[in-house]
Design a protein around this nucleic acid. Sequence first.
DNA 1: CGATTCCTTGAGACAGCTCAATTTCGGTGG
DNA 2: CCACCGAAATTGAGCTGTCTCAAGGAATCG
Lengths: 242, 242
Amino acid sequence: MHDSIPILESVRKCLDCPIRHRAVCSACEPAELAVLERIKTYRRYAPGEAIFWAGDEVSFVASVVDGHATISKTLEDGRRQTLGLLLPSDFIGRPDRATAPFDITAHSAVTLCCFRRTEFRRIVEGTPRIGQRLLEMTLDELDAAREWMLLLGRKTAREKVASLIAIFARRSKTIGRDEPATGRLVHLPMTREQMADYLGMTLETVSRQISALRREGVIELLGARTLEVIDPRRLAAESGDV
Amino acid sequence: MHDSIPILESVRKCLDCPIRHRAVCSACEPAELAVLERIKTYRRYAPGEAIFWAGDEVSFVASVVDGHATISKTLEDGRRQTLGLLLPSDFIGRPDRATAPFDITAHSAVTLCCFRRTEFRRIVEGTPRIGQRLLEMTLDELDAAREWMLLLGRKTAREKVASLIAIFARRSKTIGRDEPATGRLVHLPMTREQMADYLGMTLETVSRQISALRREGVIELLGARTLEVIDPRRLAAESGDV
DNA sequence: CGATTCCTTGAGACAGCTCAATTTCGGTGG
DNA sequence: CCACCGAAATTGAGCTGTCTCAAGGAATCG
């Protein structure tokens, strides 16, 4: 929300980059990385800061290096829908479009690895690997968006909340950095309001559903933002997925 | 729903193809088209027939040449959500995935221009234009899916129905093939149930909202599947979009 | 022109929303 | 380290938009 100009950080070596193996550049060979390394710039955003607003002219595309952000859109009267999460290695922007279709907001402190849009487009033309990787990532995003459409259009409040908890549980299981292999401890990386925006419901209903899942012994709360999955099978059943 | 094997039609010249300028092959040069022409096959599907089911192994990718189809997913208990429409020139399938994530159903009689998946992938690698066009189309689809997420998650029944009518109205205005430039006559290309599946609501509520818009003088019904937009400005306002 | 599918309308139920009041959490400074 | 403060979360009560169940009417197609 501040008007601060993003700070340019000292540029990091691509070969040491934490998103080296998952980002749009992951299929590049060392020589190709060298090209990117020469022209990339870093930008940093504070938590809550807008990366850009729907309708803005955007001169760059970027990979999320660190932190997380959200894609969202808001109706006139303030109803907001989160349309996607942006985690490290995710790609922001379209090489072929100058106008942002949605709001992008830093959610934690965010670092982006940026390329001038027109320049990036030229590089993609000369480096098919990048285009292929971007296509693959975009197709994954599209599948994920459609999966979410099913949740938004057809799932009940209970199923929505259970689905989201199951997703966080799965993520913390596969990544499991902080927790020492407890396996079932799940950190909720958003407020109830942010969950509501993502699930297409109100924060009160999210809270009530979490409380109900606790009361019924499916989960246990350890503070408002940490929980333990007591009955994973039941949680999966409550999520409504096959 | 039949088990009929899709019929192979006589192969048409790419240069005469009705989707020549919009499909995934639209950026190809004559020499590149010749390669596609040699290996493409046509498949036809009857209205209501499944093109494939979620989870199916799919050996081909395809462009819709004629007719329309829908992408959808259904929960265990039968709740169905339509995730997208497939109109002529739209692309079906992923070069890099053998399993279908969603159901694809022919809605009218459908003709597909098909390529063996692995073969298509090889061609894309040698013909960057195709990959670039596919990326562009996929990014458009992703934007459209996200726009629809806003509708599913946050719009009221009234806004959903008005939005859909507005979309059909816009489409019939720009294409305007059948109607002789009446401008405001809109044909609804789906049943109330199909609209409900697309909008994430019940067919009864769709019907009630259409009746309400008629009663309030926003539209006029000429049969159940044709309507006239009496007050376009009001319709736009009711759709909730900016 | 008969049959089937599609559409409309009504009445009642209920899931999720709104408004409002506490309570708890988590970070910060004394 | 504790007390304090603002933000976040919980919970309640009542309302309302949408769904469910049901019946009748209209359109469409062989």
